[in-house]
């Protein structure tokens, strides 16, 4: 373990609003191979949570890796995680390092 080792953070977003309220770009076979948060909308669940930041890269959603998933597939996974009634939250594993 060293100072240059990438760090990741688990962020639990409660479904506190009717929308998640993030915009993502990236996915497999693009310049940005893992989805990156480009916008956080005020009043959305992600904004209310207060722990997600623009620029963070999403590594996992509810423990499912986004590596190798194309943009639409990654977006669908996140949308479904927010929509399902099985959980009242979505867990994001994020990193600041691109």
């Amino acid at each position: 373990p060293g100072l240059l080792e990438p760090t990741s953070t688990l962020v639990r977003v409660a479904k506190s609003a009717s929308t998640l309220g993030i915009a993502i770009e990236g996915g497999a076979n693009t310049r940005q191979p893992l989805p990156r948060i480009v916008t956080i909308q005020r009043g959305g669940s992600a904004h209310n949570c207060g722990q997600l930041r623009v620029g963070q890269v999403i590594l996992e959603v509810n423990g499912v890796s986004l590596r190798g998933r194309e943009h639409r597939d990654a977006a669908r996974l996140i949308a479904e995680a927010f929509k399902t009634n099985e959980r009242d939250h979505v867990d994001f594993l994020v990193t600041e390092f691109n």
């Binding site: 929308t19 998640l20 309220g21 993030i22 915009a23 993502i24 770009e25 990236g26 996915g27 076979n29 693009t30 310049r31 940005q32 191979p33 480009v38 916008t39 909308q41 943009h71 639409r72 977006a75 996140i78 949308a79 927010f82």
Partner: peptide, 15 residues
């Protein structure tokens, strides 16, 4: 065949 030097940009999706 043309060799692509950079990958294409991604679309952006609002969730």
């Amino acid at each position: 065949r043309e060799k692509r030097l950079t990958l294409p940009p991604s679309e952006i999706t609002l969730l």
